[in-house]
């Protein structure tokens, strides 16, 4: 079953990383992605720019509305995600526990709702 791990972080706690720190971050996440691939559970991932770069759009109330900023203006913001394919929730939680960002923020784990064969 596919699960998406949503990585939430308090952006205000972030400082601009130095090039060395950036390299280190990339290496840490690279190793994690490597482990996911090696276990054969990796599906997809992305690392997002800060939420001030977000633009939100809706057609919900008839007209088109485009707004600057993220959908929810909360302290903890979505910073990235991983999609993995594992047998059950416990296994997904084990992988979430190994994700580097679990030490600095929250990870929300959600099962896929997509019927099999349409993924």
């Amino acid at each position: 079953m596919r699960y998406t791990m949503f990585l939430y972080n308090d952006e205000s706690a972030f400082t601009e990383p130095s090039p060395e720190e950036m390299q280190e971050q990339l290496a840490v996440y690279g190793a994690y992605i490597g482990a996911l691939k090696e276990a054969g559970v990796f599906v997809d991932t992305d690392w997002l720019q800060p939420s001030q770069t977000a633009t939100t759009i809706t057609l919900k109330d008839g007209g088109k509305r485009v707004q600057d900023g993220p959908y929810a203006d909360t302290k903890e913001q979505l910073g990235g995600y991983f999609v993995i394919d594992v047998p059950d929730l416990d296994t997904a939680l084990e992988w979430a526990e190994k994700c580097p960002s679990v030490h600095s923020g929250q990870i929300e784990v959600r099962p896929s709702a997509m019927p099999e064969g349409q993924k």
Partner: peptide, 8 residues
């Protein structure tokens, strides 16, 4: 059921 919590 939906999050598939396994029975172990």
């Amino acid at each position: 059921r939906d999050a598939r919590i396994s029975f172990v």
